[in-house]
């Protein structure tokens, strides 16, 4: 398989087991959602996939090459970019500097300029405020900046960890619309979310993670109808 293959990954923080044999796949251009409650191991999965953590057992393969065990900065050069939870923008840098950091690996100046221009076209609000300090943006805007910065490095797989967390509802819609657009450009997306309904609507497939194991997988639409998922993650709605 050409995309991302995560194969029976185990990981523990000291003695606390976080992942116990997680396996999933993301095909090129596909949006895959990873659902689960707090402490299920979603963020750990994201970090292992992006190389921030090395799996104790198991492997992560991207485009046919093993990436598990490589340091994070090498994994991102292979095309996997993580937009971390809690929109970790560089608060004391300007918006433009944050975006330029996204293109840090790119040494061709002309290309960096193109990427920056493309970024401002996608996110016009960032252009208006490019010389402002990133810390002065609202939460939603910082999330946009974090995503834009991730896109600056031209990922082939974008991992988004809780992009809608703590964001006002109007912007949440905008973020999910954006995820659709990103996938439309051929970038694979691994979407880690608590907002199960919105995720399942954009995702073609989804996995449900609980206590470090994948307990359910299926097509996005199908899971929306699934009784277990409805009870556990969608809440009781009429």
């Amino acid at each position: 398989m050409n995309g991302l293959v995560v194969d029976s990954v185990h990981f523990a923080y000291g003695g606390a087991r976080a992942l116990e044999g997680v396996s999933f796949q993301v095909a090129p251009g596909e949006v895959v959602a990873l659902l689960g409650s707090n402490g299920a191991g979603k963020t750990t999965t994201a970090k292992v996939t992006a190389g921030a953590l090395a799996p104790a057992v198991g492997s992560v393969t991207f485009e046919g090459q093993a990436v598990s065990g490589l340091p994070a900065h090498r994994v991102m050069r292979r095309g996997i970019v993580l937009v971390p939870e809690g929109r970790q923008v560089f608060a004391q840098m300007t918006i433009q500097e944050n975006l330029l950091m996204g293109a840090y690996k790119e040494r061709r100046r002309a290309r960096v300029k193109e990427l920056l221009e493309r970024s401002y076209e996608t996110f016009p609000r960032l252009r208006e405020r490019r010389s402002q300090i990133a810390g002065s943006l609202s939460g939603g805007e910082q999330q946009m900046l974090a995503i834009a910065r991730g896109l600056m490095s031209e990922p082939r797989l974008l991992i988004m960890d809780e992009p809608s967390l703590g964001i006002m509802p109007k912007l949440v819609q905008e973020i999910f619309g954006l995820i659709r657009r990103i996938a439309g450009t051929g970038v694979s997306v691994l979407l880690i979310e608590q907002n199960a309904r919105a995720s399942l609507e954009v995702a073609s497939r989804a996995y449900v993670l609980e206590k470090g194991r994948i307990i359910l997988e299926g097509e996005g639409r199908a899971l929306l109808e699934d009784e277990f998922v409805q009870n556990a993650y969608l809440g009781a709605e009429n």
């Binding site: 921030a52 994070a72 900065h73 971390p84 560089f90 840090y104």
Partner: peptide
């Protein structure tokens, strides 16, 4: 950590 994610 974020710096590493961005390729530093």
């Amino acid at each position: 950590d974020t710096a590493a994610m961005l390729g530093v």
